[in-house]
Design a binder for these strands. Structure first.
Length: 947
RNA sequence: GCCCGAUUAGCUCAGCGGUAGAGCGCCUGCCUUACAAGCAGGAUGUCGCUGGUUCGAAACCGGCAUCGGGCACCA
């Protein structure tokens, strides 16, 4: 331990407080230099693999990533201690639209535009940004102590992964699962790109409902009707109306179906059609139909053969078809159309109307349903395969309830628009044979899908070469300028990172499918489902094993800020993990986050004072780290230079009561903790270890061992006896064992601190790591439930004595005789065996244990007295007794017992209880009642003695 | 409209069929040579409301209320 913060100071003692910053940096460097987390696919051991959800290179990480990192790292470190061959693979995501939006904003702020810059220069800038942001992110992940294999770090746009993207696209296309066509898509005018359904967020807004008069073209009907009234929230779209729909059974309009309307402002003749979609009860029961600008209208239009008339351009302005409104922005056009309708007498009324408006997640503007030629993935066949797998239990969701969310989304799934009119991303591997359509790309331009330009040329040559030459044209190819949805590459992550599509890739063979995916519920659709769908399409994967990319999916909640708000970049309320790491240490932050997570899958709230940069929760975890530091410090000062190895297993024959107790507790905690880690009960594991370490190890065991670790000489100047020295060795061995194993159990949660302390305690050489040790072996024989129960009574007895001393106001330095009276032989035996311990922990002058008969024979003394269970505790302190405090204490005992008697006897008096409850419950109840009654009687007796 | 969470001590949350728990905060006393980032002791709850099931409900079931989230969406 060179330069260790744990290095002994000149006087040979560790500092009193733990300073995490240097220690953490040192171990991170040591682990990495040694390649501690760089697994060998050829090595033995059961494989365990996790690919981390790659953070977007959009800047830096916030606390949510810190939380996820803490969870994943705890899991993989535990599995490593279990002896598995663990791969934890890191990486980042290029985040196509997010990064491009961000960069365009930057460029705009500098007074430029991406189009001025050009595609190549823009991409250069994007790569520079990636370098910067990616570096920041990797630095942050390192500071958290993430035990990933940095040598296998991947980026979704790196050459290997890009090749995987192309391969996946080509294969999907070959299977007929990718198609290109003109459909109504969600168009984001801000990004200038199509986006998928998932990237659209509905927002409730206050808008208006405009009612317009649409005149019938022909003569008024028999009943004098010469127009219909339609209502719309989007007047500007009326320029593209190609019909009006009514419900087929609506008697008001039945006679009008088939007639035509003259569209105001435009003059187009449009039919009145009958369609089930119309709700006769809403508004007037008449709906204007704009198939090119609304998904529902698109559906109505296609059922009735209505033409599609697009009146808006991709930039959100009205196009030439919009006539006098051409060139107006869509929101200006709305006002202008309303004004024109009003001027021409077609506006009937305007009502305020609250409705949902689709917004683009990234662009933060309303999306426009627009007709556009795009690439799509046919989703249903892939979803069906996933649903079938789910019926077979794959993957397993933790907590279980998320399975339903996943399944529901896979049911009634819509096709996935995967093309984006962006630059930053994977270029679509399709080449248009533009020589066929006069050098331009149109919907009609034929294309070939290929792995590269050369393959494209071969394919195009085969398909169009001859005909082309015959027509005297030179074959001319142009790659599709668009890129793929960022989630297309993320969807391949669990296998593209392992070497797919190379079927012989060692990592793929060894670690696919991965063991568990740990992620937030907010990307179950975006990511989890896309991974399972794409994996299903790409099988076989790996060595022909299961195709589902992960066995388990652990879904965690979101980290919310101190005001219970979701952290987000736009809200500016993200909490940066680094300042908290600087202040409290990465281990403290990790522990604090994981400890909060017990209610599986629930969001967690991190308290944080922005003004001071402090967090009480993290501070509590830091204090825990310091507690462990000091416990180890104590051990180093008291083990006489020995180590857990040199001390060996303590001789069972020489173990004292407290030794057997803590060893039994250790064994139980060891089992519980392993079970919790293995089943993703990480919060429970953290809480359990916190309580065990602080209460049972530090507050009780260390305090109890002190007496034996530092034996007083029998007489002045005389060396301790051989017996005492032997016991000292036992005490040392117990302390060393408990601490050493505790550090292993804590390691997944607090890797740096445990590594540091373990080295200090064991003297392990530098190149040896706790991170690569084994989980301590199970020792069944150490478990002793009866002993644990009776030791709990001893603890309770000590507490009562301490309480009496506090009530009476005894000074800490002041000794007092302690007298226990009990009729229960087992309890008396434990108290006698533990009398030396009691002496130490209660400042007893003497400890006497009597049975009631013997006690009755003694002269009654004025004493501090309390009763617990079947035990009377007396501190005979003639003259020093605060009688009032003592009476209050006894009265409290009586009140407590009385309340219990009332409850228990009431229950026992109920004949149904005695008759129907299990006999052991009834017996327990009776025993408790007897005890409470005895307790009340004893306390009353004591009270009477006081006079 | 459909679905899913949550509601327990001042705060953050465990508990999920047998007499209410932890951490933080609070009160009292302690610098007891591991630790004041600590030690010992203490106070604090109609477990959202309401029916039901049960010998017994904070826990299980039904309804309601409030808060949060997801999906769908009628112009």
């Amino acid at each position: 331990m060179t330069e260790a913060s744990a290095a002994p100071s000149p006087d040979g003692v560790l500092p009193k407080t733990y300073d995490p910053v240097l220690t953490e940096a040192r171990w991170q460097a040591a682990w990495e230099e040694a390649g501690a987390f760089h697994p060998d696919p050829a090595a033995g051991g059961e494989p365990f693999a996790v690919v981390i959800p790659p953070p977007n290179v959009t800047g830096s990480l916030h606390m949510g990533h810190g939380f996820e990192t803490a969870l994943i790292d705890t899991i993989v470190r535990f599995q490593r201690l279990q002896g598995k061959n663990v791969l934890c693979l890191p990486g980042t995501d290029h985040a196509s639209i997010a990064v491009q939006t961000l960069l365009e904003k930057q460029i705009k702020a500098e007074g430029g535009s991406k189009d001025d810059l050009g595609r190549d220069a823009f991409l250069e800038r994007a790569w520079a940004w990636k370098g910067e942001s990616g570096g920041t992110i990797v630095g942050q992940l390192r500071r958290l102590g993430y035990s990933v294999d940095w040598r296998r770090e991947r980026f979704t746009l790196d050459p290997g992964l890009s090749a995987a993207v192309v391969e996946a696209f080509v294969r999907l296309h070959e299977q007929g699962l990718i198609y290109r066509g003109e459909y109504l898509v969600n168009w984001c005018p801000a990004s200038g790109s199509a986006v998928s359904d998932l990237e659209v967020e509905m927002k409730e807004l206050d808008g208006h409902l405009w009612h317009f008069r649409y005149p019938l073209s022909g003569e008024p009907a028999a009943d004098g009707i010469d127009h219909l009234v339609v209502a719309t929230t989007r007047p500007e779209t009326l320029l593209g109306d190609t019909g009006v729909a009514v419900h087929p059974t609506d008697p008001r309009y039945a006679a009008l179906v088939g007639q035509t309307i003259t569209l105001p402002l435009v003059g187009r003749q449009i039919p009145i059609v009958a369609d089930e979609h119309v709700d006769p009860a809403f508004g007037t029961g008449c709906v204007k139909v704009t198939p090119a600008h609304d998904p529902n209208d698109f559906a109505i239009g296609s059922r009735h053969g209505l033409p599609l008339i697009t009146v808006m351009a991709k930039d959100g302005r009205m196009n030439g078809v919009a006539g006098r409104f051409a060139g107006l922005d869509r929101f200006e056009a709305r006002k202008a159309v309303v004004a024109a309708m009003q001027a021409e007498g077609f506006l009937v009324k305007v009502e305020p109307h609250r409705h949902s408006v689709p917004f683009s997640d990234r662009g933060k503007v309303p999306v426009e349903p627009l007709l556009s030629t795009q690439w799509f993935v046919k989703a249903e066949p892939l979803a069906a395969r996933c649903r079938e797998a789910l019926d077979g239990g794959a993957p397993r969701f933790v907590p279980e309830r998320w399975e339903k969310v996943y399944r529901d989304w896979l049911t009634d799934i819509r096709d996935w628009c995967i093309s984006r009119q962006l630059w930053w991303g994977h270029r679509i591997p399709a080449w248009f044979v533009v020589s066929e359509t006069g050098g331009v790309i149109s919907e009609a331009t034929p294309y070939v899908v290929a792995r590269d330009g050369a393959e494209a040329r071969v394919k195009a040559e085969a398909a169009y070469g001859e005909a082309s030459r015959a027509a005297g044209r030179e074959l001319q190819l142009e790659q599709d300028p668009d890129v793929l949805d960022t989630w297309f590459s993320s969807g391949l992550w669990p296998f593209s990172t392992l070497g797919w599509p190379d079927p012989n890739a060692a990592d793929l063979g060894r670690w696919y499918p991965t063991s568990v995916l740990v992620t937030g519920f907010d990307i179950i659709f975006f990511w989890v489902a896309r991974m399972t769908m794409l994996a299903g399409a790409m099988r076989p994967l790996g060595a022909g094993k299961a195709w589902m990319p992960f066995a388990d999916v652990m879904i965690h909640g979101l980290v919310r800020d101190e005001n219970n708000r979701k952290m987000s970049k736009s809200a500016g309320n993200g909490i940066d993990p680094l300042p908290l790491i600087e202040r409290y240490g990465a281990d403290a932050l990790r522990f604090a986050l994981v400890r909060e997570v017990a209610g599986a899958g629930q969001d967690i709230r991190l308290d944080y004072d922005r003004a001071s940069g402090s967090s009480a929760t993290v501070e509590a975890a830091r204090n825990f780290a310091n507690k462990l530091w000091n416990a180890t410090r104590f051990a180093l000062m008291n083990l006489g230079g020995e180590t857990p190895a040199s001390l060996g297993t303590p001789d069972p024959a020489r173990l004292q009561l407290a030794d057997r107790w803590i060893l039994s507790r250790l064994e139980r905690v060891k089992r519980e903790t392993a079970q919790r880690y293995a089943s993703y009960g990480l919060g429970e594991a953290a809480k359990g270890l916190y309580e065990f370490a602080w209460n049972e190890v530090c507050d009780w065991t260390i305090e109890l061992l002190k007496r034996r670790l530092n034996p007083r000489p029998a007489a002045e100047g005389e060396p301790p006896s051989a017996e005492v020295l032997a016991d000292q060795q036992v005490a040392r061995a117990v302390l060393a064992k408990v601490l050493a194993e505790l550090l292993v159990l804590l390691h997944p949660l607090m890797p740096h601190l445990s590594e540091e302390l373990w080295h200090g305690l064991t003297g392990a050489p530098e190149g040896t790591f706790l991170a690569l040790q084994s989980w301590p072996a199970a020792e069944e024989a150490a478990l002793d439930a009866d002993l644990e129960a009776s030791f709990a009574e001893l603890i309770e007895a000590i507490r009562v004595v301490r309480n009496l001393r506090a009530v009476a106001g005894l000074k800490p330095s002041q000794g007092a005789p302690v007298l226990f009276i009990t009729g229960r032989q087992e309890l008396a035996a434990v108290l006698r065996e533990g009398s030396a311990d009691i002496t130490t922990l209660t400042k007893a002058e003497s400890v006497t244990v009597l049975d009631p008969a013997a006690a009755a024979a003694r002269p009654a003394a004025r004493a501090l007295a309390a009763v617990t269970g079947e035990l009377q505790v007396l501190l005979p302190l003639e003259g020093l007794v605060d009688l009032d405090a003592l009476r209050a204490r006894l009265e409290k005992d009586i009140a407590k017992a009385t309340k219990e008697i009332k409850g228990l006897s009431g229950r026992l008096a109920n004949p149904n209880f005695a008759g129907k409850a299990p006999p052991e419950v009834v017996a327990e109840c009776q025993a408790n009642l007897a005890e409470a009654e005895a307790q009340a009687a004893l306390a009353r007796g004591r009270l009477a003695d006081l006079g």
